[in-house]
Design a protein around this nucleic acid. Structure first.
Lengths: 328, 328
DNA sequence: CAGAAAACTGAAAACCTTTTCAGCTCCATT
DNA sequence: AATGGAGCTGAAAAGGTTTTCAGTTTTCTG
């Protein structure tokens, strides 16, 4: 069969324990270490990680649970997580939930069975609400979305502020009727909603929010409705990258141009937002930072389990482009 | 500590073996099964996958090794792989190589140590060349890129044909000076190059190919050069999605419009290609199909290890948009 | 140079399952 | 009524490593 530590030990004329010590870089007399190392090379030995994990009780695995890796936000996030993980000599198990609570709980259970070192997790609002009740044997860092209380480590954007900044920007450019299209599954969407609502109210404007499943197709359908309405707004805000994409698709189908026919602003500075038309005004999230911060929090939590939960809130940056220019 | 199968056994008044059998859905008298099941529920038992893997010699894990998950092609691919894995009750370990052979070999080694069930792998040309010599203990399915010989299962696009289709299309539209911008790391790029070259030669045209690292930034720099040349071509072909993106960026910076200033065509029907300007002409790859096919090949290989290697070649589809219209 | 401390090594236990093997019960067949 | 077989179950081994513990060698101290 495959060569084990025992075979290496025999080949090197030492005990398995010594081989293990060489592998773990523990203190071993140079001469023996030498012998073991050549034995490893000769036999082509590869440690069995399952056995190692079982014995050492360290899985060196982190779980990444996101709605859909195809959402560019989570794509970039996952890349940042993977980078940090491999620097720390850890593997990443990837889980897509499709915003489906059933899939979420099933993956959370899987994480338990894997005895993962920790989890980076963007929960739906539904599952997040029960997060206090659930008890995990591993640390969880929430990312992009927060839990029911301040009880969990999390890394999120200052969504209310970012949303308000969008309103403020459009207001400053002279727009008054500003409608918002928001996702209906995440805490992020609702935070952005309240930032929007508040900012509108502060300026004596009447907020008008619509809700939609956070994917491009659903958003496109909703946007077509809004855009073809007789009383369509002067400006439309999209609460995330996928929704913004749907809006852009609807605009194209209807042959509308921003900002001439309607002003557009939204979230997530995806590459295409700068290329489309004369550019879409967006809030840029520090996505890679979010991922790295999440991993940092996770590692610190592992090191100091009793530490009080921390919420890291990062700021978005308004990228002004032509889609929100005052027309004419 | 955490509850093990032994604790469940005690709680249910049976042997650990019986608990194991219940878990594996083996034949157990209904009454005992009942008792075990409630014991599991009561104790909150979760199997330890490391132990299970060690003993059963099945990792139920598949490795996914891609250059960069942020390349939309691989994003979609990974999603398809994860879906198929999920359905087969397997986990996915995600690896980004950044087209770096060192990282590749280190991940391949990791896969050995994980004793993975199989690997889906998009190798660089450099590592692919040595694939015959390397010997893995697990099946490998190459994806998007092929190995040195027909010795490996693989799922790829008919790249030569697709590339030729692009030339043919541009030729039909009246373009004669057609330059190509190709990646320099993958077999895919070189296949597309030869498709391009051949199609050009067939029509008595002189091929003109440039090579670039397959990422948007490098492509943008190269494209700026090409586009600012006095004798810039009538049409430019980009050999993948990232390169096409770089071209689009360069066009924008230089204030050029397709097809008025130059015709553009490329690979990968990313969403933004339909939204930008009046649309970019591209070859659409059946990406999800590629992923699913790869998993199917992998599973079939596991089932029938001695089967001869199979190459699945899928066809791209030309999406004609305005960027390749004859101007004026 | 003796004795104590430090450094190193190996045997065996432990990690948590699954799987083998033998034994038991129960039923059907002759 | 004896025999054979099918269907279950439990004890124990096995899977490949790390870790503990005790023992041995080496180094240091006075």
């Amino acid at each position: 069969m495959s060569v084990g530590i025992k075979d290496v030990a025999i080949a090197a004329g030492v005990s398995p324990a010594t081989v293990s010590r060489v592998l773990a870089n523990h203190t071993v007399k140079p001469e023996l270490r030498e012998r073991v190392e050549t034995a490893i090379r000769l036999t082509g030995y590869r440690p069995n990680l399952s056995a190692r994990r079982l014995r050492s009780q360290h899985s060196n695995t982190i779980g990444l649970i996101v709605p859909d890796i195809r959402n560019p936000f989570f794509t970039t996030l996952s890349r940042a997580v993977e980078d940090a993980a491999y620097k720390a000599n850890m593997r990443v198990v990837l889980c897509n939930t499709d915003e489906n609570p059933t899939r979420e709980t099933m993956y959370l259970r899987l994480m338990q069975e894997e005895r993962v070192t920790g989890v980076i997790y963007a929960p739906t609002r539904e599952t997040a609400a029960q997060l206090d009740r659930l008890n995990f044997d591993f640390p969880v860092v929430l990312v992009d979305r927060h839990g029911p209380s301040g009880k969990h480590d999390s890394v999120i954007l200052d969504n209310r502020q970012a949303s308000a900044a969008l309103v403020e920007h459009l207001y400053a450019r002279g727009f008054r009727s500003i409608e918002g299209l928001f996702g209906n599954t995440s805490s992020t969407a609702s935070d952005r909603l309240s930032g929007y609502t508040e900012a509108m109210n502060d300026r004596g404007l009447k907020p008008h929010a619509d809700f939609v499943a956070p994917n491009a197709d659903a958003a496109a359908i909703a946007a077509r409705h809004i855009l073809s309405r007789k009383d369509r707004p002067e400006a439309l805000i999209a609460s995330n990258g996928l929704i913004l994409l749907g809006v852009a698709q609807a605009m194209q189908e209807l042959g509308l141009q921003a900002p001439d026919d309607i002003a557009i602003a939204g979230f997530d500075n995806e590459i295409w937002t700068g290329l489309i038309g004369s550019g879409l005004t967006v809030i840029q999230q520090p996505v890679a930072d979010i991922g790295h911060s999440a991993m940092r929090l996770l590692f610190e939590r592992i090191e100091t389990p009793e530490m009080a939960p921390r919420v890291v809130m990062l700021s978005g940056k308004l990228i002004e482009r032509n889609s929100s220019k005052r027309p004419g």
